[in-house]
């Protein structure tokens, strides 16, 4: 009896140690820790991506249940359509001007806040919070907000101010060029906050002693900015540039709410073109092909930025 008890105990100990060995093996294997993220990425990122690629090779439609694989026909249709090139032109203007303005204004704000904080001036926190609030508002709300501001009667907020200052009512949203400008303005208003946060964080990484050394070396504030701040900000500027370019290329909700792509198709950026193609004209295959083109554009842009802006060297 006693022998049996001790044997059972022995087996229990062996089993426990095996389980614990197995546990530690599982725990120590990198796969255990990578798997949750890998599953998440596969389900929510990779699968839709692969699906978009697959769809782009079909003539899938929202109203026809049947579809067939048409190879590169969808792409060739997209590239041969004058609409696509016209939307691309609008997108390039929208993205180019927005990015330049967002970086420029973001930099000015970041420098002003940095200066304020270093000098212990009042109001720098209030400024940061107000600028940040523009960033946390959803794009669709920003679109509606700006639509209200830009109402084309004397009761629209901005037109009211213009009229009070002695000007005429401006067709912010019904004139093609002005509508594009208004869209850029609203997008810049939103995106500047992100630029500011990134660049402000970057400025904190530029050591004060380097600025002191440059002051001793006789560099004026502008020269210090040009020769010390900008080169040291390059990595942050680069990341900022890539991210805001990608965000702006993909901007869709704000434009939809603000102009709906109009007047005519004056503000129909590629993302909106893709949306209309899928849900207004029901051409899922074409929409997927545009999505793939946009993805490739984003990837190519990132590669170009990495290659030419940062070079291969980091300091």
């Amino acid at each position: 009896m006693a022998t049996e008890t001790s044997r059972t105990r022995h087996y229990a100990t062996v089993a426990r140690s095996r389980v614990s060995r197995l546990g530690s093996a599982v725990q120590e294997h990198p796969l255990t820790w990578l798997l949750p993220a890998a599953i998440f990425l596969c389900v929510f990122l990779l699968y839709p991506l692969v699906e978009a690629f697959r769809m782009s090779f079909t003539n899938m439609s929202l109203i026809e249940p049947d579809y067939s694989y048409v190879g590169l026909d969808t792409f060739s249709r997209v590239f041969n359509s004058s609409d696509f090139w016209s939307m691309t032109r609008i997108t390039v203007i929208f993205v180019g001007v927005s990015v330049v303005l967002q970086i420029g204004l973001g930099m000015i704000l970041a420098l002003a806040i940095d200066y304020g904080v270093r000098r212990g001036l009042y109001g720098s926190i209030v400024t940061r919070i107000s600028v940040l609030s523009a960033w946390v508002i959803p794009g669709i709300v920003i679109g509606i907000l700006w639509k209200i501001m830009l109402i084309e009667t004397r009761y629209g907020v901005i037109n009211y101010i213009i009229v009070r200052l002695g000007g005429d009512v401006v067709s912010f949203l019904s004139d093609g060029q002005m509508a594009l400008l208004s869209t850029i303005m609203a997008n810049t208003w939103r995106g500047t906050a992100f630029s500011m946060i990134m660049l402000y964080a970057g400025l904190q990484q530029v050591p004060e002693y380097l600025q002191d050394a440059a002051r001793i070396d006789g560099a004026s504030p502008l020269q210090r900015f040009r020769h010390i701040t900008i080169p040291l900000l390059m990595p942050v500027l680069f990341i900022n540039l890539v991210l805001i370019t990608i965000y702006t290329v993909n901007t869709f909700d704000m434009v939809l709410a603000l102009t709906g792509g109009g007047p005519g198709r004056a503000t129909e950026v590629l993302a909106l073109f893709m949306y209309f193609e899928a849900f207004n004209r029901f051409n899922l295959g074409t929409a997927a092909a545009i999505a793939v083109v946009m993805l490739l554009v984003n990837v190519v842009m990132t590669v170009i930025y990495i290659k030419y802006l940062l070079g291969e060297e980091e300091f």
Binding site: Y209, L210, I216, P231, L232, F315
Partner: peptide
């Protein structure tokens, strides 16, 4: 007309 040497060298890293 002065020059300064800093504790952490303050060389421009780039």
């Amino acid at each position: 007309d002065i020059a300064m040497v800093f504790q952490n060298y303050a060389l421009y890293p780039h």
